[in-house]
Design a protein around this nucleic acid. Structure first.
Lengths: 187, 187
DNA sequence: CCTTGAGTGGCACTTGGTGACATATTTTGT
DNA sequence: ACAAAATATGTCACCAAGTGCCACTCAAGG
């Protein structure tokens, strides 16, 4: 079960993340130092780095284990399912988690350091996804391409969503984009 | 024309890049400081940053204007050509430029900082590619997806090439991967 | 009550990257 | 050929991200 330790730890993490978001939104990412964030949450810079390994992760912290989780969900899918159907089914629920609010997504999109960090996270996840797919019997090349293409799809969805100012039905949009790429993966 | 200035500048850049590669290969990227590289080339750290804007760029320097160049090549394609054919035709020659030698590609693939920087470069290029495609009349969504998918394709090619230890015919492989995704872009 | 262990602050340190100033060297206009 | 403008370089100071280390606090459990 979850003891007091873990609960307070989560609370402090949330507090830091929330302060960071405030400061980023009000001053910009580059103009906010880690000292600022830590100070706003009543702690030292050193302690900040005990909760988040980089400044960027104050925004992306919730996605830390994304790769493992996605890989696990993939393994749980029916084994006869094709790789693209599988990725579609799993990732359609993740899109909303990656891009929670428009403001944040817009901030990420307009801040090179954050954008870069997000790409890095996706790339880490890709590795896990590839393994999960090959474990299902998909060939290396197809698994690799499918994982990369799925990342491209999610990225496209996010930008299209931004273009519509966050007002479109994201699940429908995700389905549409995955459907566009579907013909490529009819093994 | 190209005067002495530009020639020496290119020479110094090349020298720095070459020293950097040597040091990275022998000690690893993280274990090599910018001071080391600059020192090995007989200059100061400050001057290094007058040739490369980041430490990573000592390896990627030649790709600096990739985005603009690719965009320009896209604009030069026959206007009735579909977006995917167009991207395929342009990018098939770029694959070999991005991954020149196996050693370098392997180094990049195994060094998070370098991998991240490469992703960043591709992302910058993507922006330009999207513009070039919409200028040809392609819709925002399709241009976005095609550009992202093309990046995914190149990435997949690079990794498959690595798996074969750099011994496969890369152009043929590139054509194969682009052909796989082709059905998605039959407008 | 005492021990153990986790969270914290503080400090020094490394390193990537930037700005400012002074000084050569090279290009260019006359 | 010479002055003026543009470039290249070094040096130095500086900022901020991130890490290692040590000492301290404080709650939990025997």
């Amino acid at each position: 079960m979850e003891g007091l330790r873990d609960r307070t730890r989560r609370a402090v993490r949330a507090e830091l993340a929330s302060r960071a978001l405030e400061l980023f939104a009000e001053r910009g990412f580059d103009e906010t130092t880690v000292d600022d964030i830590a100070g706003a949450a009543g702690m030292s810079k050193r302690s900040f780095f005990r909760y988040f390994s980089t400044k960027e992760d104050a925004l992306f912290g919730e996605l830390e284990t994304m790769g493992e989780q996605v890989a696990q969900e993939i393994s749980a899918r029916p084994p006869q399912e094709g790789p693209w159907e599988c990725l579609h089914a799993v990732l359609r629920t993740w899109e909303a988690r990656i891009n929670a609010q428009v403001d944040v997504t817009r901030l990420v999109e307009s801040t090179p350091a954050l954008r870069t960090r997000l790409l890095h996270k996706r790339d880490e996840a890709r590795t896990h996804i590839i393994r999960a797919l090959t474990d299902r019997g998909v060939s290396q090349l197809e698994a690799d391409l499918a994982a990369a293409a799925a990342g491209a799809a999610l990225d496209t969805v996010a930008r299209e969503w931004l273009r519509a100012d966050g007002s479109t039905d994201r699940l429908a949009l995700t389905d549409r984009v995955f459907a566009m790429l579907r013909p490529a993966f009819l093994s």
